[in-house]
């Protein structure tokens, strides 16, 4: 009986909690070791520029003379390669994602060398 089947599924759904989360009020905690955003422990950094050269998305900009290290989180593709290659291990990956912003962060890294 289609009607009986339908009524039973309707009743089943009525007893259930919603499948979605009420987003801004409840945020699902990030999984452990999820790739969220890159953070740097700046005192340890020697500004060697390896992360800048290896970054697939050209999101990192470093300058050894002026001691600058910046990352454009909107350009970053969260591949975690810079964390793997950093010689001082001063980079790490946080599991929470970068927050939205109204401006573009960081300098525009040039594609040409």
């Amino acid at each position: 009986m289609p009607i009986a089947k339908m009524t039973s599924s309707v009743l089943k759904i009525l007893g259930k909690k919603p499948s979605t989360r009420a987003y801004p009020f409840y945020k699902r905690p990030a999984f452990k070791d999820a790739r969220g955003k890159i953070v740097i422990d700046i005192p340890l950094c020697i500004y060697c520029g390896i992360c800048m050269r290896r970054c697939p998305a050209n999101a990192i900009f470093t300058n050894i003379k002026e001691k600058v290290w910046t990352i454009d989180h909107f350009r970053c593709v969260n591949c975690k390669l810079c964390v793997d290659v950093c010689p001082k291990k001063c980079l790490s990956m946080e599991s929470d994602q970068a927050l939205p912003s109204t401006t573009r962060l960081g300098p525009e890294p040039s594609l040409k060398k």
Binding site: F31, K32, K80
Partner: peptide, 22 residues
């Protein structure tokens, strides 16, 4: 797509990325 969401959760938990596993 609701079912797919569970799969994506497993993927994120094991690899660290939701769709780009890396």
């Amino acid at each position: 797509w609701r079912i797919r969401e569970h799969i994506l959760d497993i993927i994120e938990e094991t690899t660290g990325g939701r769709v780009i596993f890396g």
